[in-house]
């Protein structure tokens, strides 16, 4: 059981055909050969950078050196210092990512359900709705987030409308708030939630729903007892694909937030590029990576969807 298998919830179909031994061995050799470019790519652009990151995170400043000059060392205190200073941003990142994931699930599941189940048998409508889900990818992530800045601006009709109905005090604002950051995260990662759930619900056997109805379950009960449990692998994939990038995101908090909504990605960015504090930036990156890994493993274990994958 691994994250990878949780993400790839489609049928693996990894079984080799029951052929005689010799051709099978040859086929397996061929498979490794085909994997070689991928392994080389991952080695070059994933393993080496991660090792470099780990090494950098333990560097110390060169005594009397210039800004950005560091020497190799085993300075574990880089971690404690980074955590002591930036734990609020780290916690906030996970909190924002969590709320955004829950919101994306609340919005994305019904969308996926409508497209996969309600629009079933109407391929044109299904195709149209799917294109609408994917359409935001046709423009840049940054541009769309800047557009949100305008939508949520103090003088925008959205804010005045919300003020008018009393959901926001007359001097309340949406831009440059935690709400705006979470809204931006939710919006930007919504397709990553919707599509895996869609892919799962699309394979839902309508005969399961008939069996539920036949066994005295009304619509909502059939949904709760049959549809939802069967779609859990899609939900697990979608939440992972949303939560992981959202917790490391820095674009939304930069464009839609303020100084008190800073997320950990933003800290890493500024430590690295603005003040050239490479060891701290590297240490924070490692902490983020490990924390996400621990959270995700705990989540996948808890979801217990192994036998459905």
């Amino acid at each position: 059981m691994s994250i990878v298998s949780a993400l790839g919830h489609g049928q693996g179909g990894g079984g080799t055909s029951p052929a005689v031994a010799a051709p099978r061995r040859r086929a397996r050799g061929g498979a490794y050969l085909l994997l070689a470019p991928g392994i080389a790519y991952l080695g070059l652009f994933f393993v080496i950078p991660v090792v470099a990151l780990l090494v950098t995170s333990l560097y110390v400043p060169v005594p009397g050196g210039e800004v950005g000059q560091f020497a190799p060392a085993f300075e574990w205190r880089n971690y404690t210092a980074a955590l002591a200073t930036y734990w609020p941003q780290l916690v906030r990142s996970f909190a924002y990512a969590f709320v955004a994931t829950v919101a994306a699930l609340a919005i994305g599941y019904p969308m996926a359900y409508v497209i996969a189940v309600r629009a079933r048998g109407r391929p044109f409508l299904q195709g149209l709705l799917l294109v609408l889900v994917i359409a935001p990818f046709f423009t840049s992530f940054i541009l769309r987030t800047i557009a949100w800045k305008q939508i949520l601006a103090d003088e925008s009709f959205v804010v005045s409308a919300i003020r008018a109905v009393g959901l926001l005090p007359p001097d309340g604002r949406l831009t440059a708030t935690g709400f705006a950051v979470v809204a931006g995260l939710t919006y930007n990662f919504l397709p990553f939630m919707t599509l895996p759930i869609y892919a799962n619900l699309e394979r839902l056997d309508p005969r399961m729903l008939e069996a539920g109805a036949d066994l005295y379950a009304d619509g909502p009960t059939t949904f709760r007892r049959v549809t939802l449990p069967l779609s859990l692998p899609g939900v697990v994939s979608g939440t992972l694909l949303t939560f992981i990038p959202a917790s490391g995101d820095f674009v939304n908090s930069v464009l839609l937030g303020n100084t008190s909504t800073t997320m950990i990605g933003q800290v890493v960015d500024s430590r690295f590029f603005k003040v050239s504090d490479y060891p701290t930036a590297a240490a924070l990156s490692v902490v983020l990576m490990v924390a996400i890994l621990v959270l995700v493993i705990a989540y996948v274990r808890r979801a217990g969807t192994e036998e459905l994958l």
Binding site: R207, M208, D214, A217
Partner: peptide, 20 residues
Amino acid sequence: TRAHQRPVNTVFQSYALFPH
């Protein structure tokens, strides 16, 4: 009446057992 309200049960051709 709806299917879930009828005192009737079906053995489906595909069995339609709940895999979960």
